[in-house]
Simulated scan of single mutants.
Amino acid sequence: MQSKAKITAIGSYVPECKLTNADLEKLVDTNDEWIVKRTGMKERRIAHEYEFTSNIGYNAVRNLIERFDQSIEDVDMVIVCTMSPDFQTPSVASLIQAKLGIKNTGAIDLNAACAGFTYGLHVANGLITSGLNKKVLVIGAEALSKITDYEDRSTCVLFGDGGGAVLVEYDEENPSFIAGHLGSEGEHGKNLYCTNVANQINGETLISTGNIIQNGREVYKWAVNTVPRGMASLLSKTTMSLSDVDWFVPHSANLRIIESICRKSSFPIEKTLQSLVYYGNTSAASIPLALDKAVCEGKLEIDNKLLLYGFGGGLAHAGVLINWTVA
């Protein structure tokens, strides 16, 4: 079905507090050289004690409103993509809806972990193109510091907090969405999970600490094989090739993963956008943060073709090919 949805505005927010590699040297047995060599990260932002995902997402929307002079009173759906909600219920989307003061809107959380934002865009495009909604806020926001073990050097060097938001509106004449691709391999979910309840995946009992637990080696192997195949599948639904893509925007998991994906797909790293160097891995927020960073740096132009690809916990992945439409 031909898309009828257009991205019309973008905004972002990160907490003020910075956690540098030098700071991490004081917490665990690590050093700046080791972290940069293995991840490419130098800093990450950390929410303060009383700052949660709903605050981060709300501030990203406020940034969008102020920069693009947008009215959100007629927004009829709020989708928050997150794996670090304030509560199990109410949803982060409902909390943000209340902070924004918009009454006549649906509000849902979507948890596809690091693939959350691209899944959220798929859902927004489907809702608008089908005629069910006219104006949707898609927010990727995380407070991962709340679920990070700062005694585990394999994970605490990775994760940071932040959020990004886009406004998606009905526009039959100039839609943003070209094609999409979705996938999941839940049988490998044990390689990246977070639970505070004793449970099992495929008969294997998982540690229930309430913090993120990751088998980095297995996630790396899965990502560098899965994402290039997904990119090819996505493009096969169009008349385009990778050479027609102006910018590749993968989930900012780790610079070494991004470099491997680019090598395997023969895509130039110079045409790749990321947000990890100064924000770390922000899960569902990493792609909108990378997009907004590029907007602020003047890199994105109207009608640029962007290939966005999220991948992570689930293990779920999702790609979307878009025509950039934010002036």
Rank of each mutant, 00 (worst) to 15 (best):
G57M: 02
H181S: 15
E187M: 15
D23N: 10
G116E: 02
P288I: 08
G163E: 04
N63V: 09
F267Y: 15
L273S: 06
V168F: 03
L182P: 03
T30M: 09
Y50R: 14
A290Q: 10
T82W: 08
P250K: 06
T272K: 03
V245I: 15
I46R: 08
A93L: 00
T155A: 05
M1P: 06
P250E: 08
L242D: 13
K37P: 00
K293N: 15
M83H: 12
E142M: 03
C17E: 13
L255D: 11
L255C: 09
A115I: 08
R62H: 12
D69I: 12
T89A: 09
L192A: 07
N104A: 12
T282F: 10
H188L: 15
V61L: 05
L100Y: 08
I46Y: 07
V136C: 03
A124T: 11
P175I: 04
G298I: 02
K190N: 10
A60R: 01
H48V: 15
T30K: 10
N202K: 02
E301V: 11
F248K: 10
H181A: 13
L235A: 10
N199F: 10
Y193P: 02
G183L: 05
N31A: 07
I56C: 04
L315H: 03
M231P: 01
R217E: 14
N31I: 07
G40I: 07
Q97L: 06
V224L: 06
D23I: 06
K305C: 14
K103N: 08
K305F: 12
L100M: 13
V136S: 02
L273R: 03
S243H: 13
V197K: 14
V78Y: 00
N21V: 02
F159V: 02
T148M: 08
S252G: 15
A316Y: 08
E142H: 01
E142F: 00
R62N: 14
E49P: 05
C17A: 12
E301I: 08
S176P: 04
W222C: 12
L100K: 08
S233F: 13
A5M: 01
L315W: 02
A290C: 11
M83D: 12
T118N: 07
G160P: 05
I257L: 00
A285D: 09
S283G: 02
K37I: 01
V138T: 01
E25G: 05
R62L: 14
N196Y: 11
T118Q: 06
S12K: 07
V157D: 00
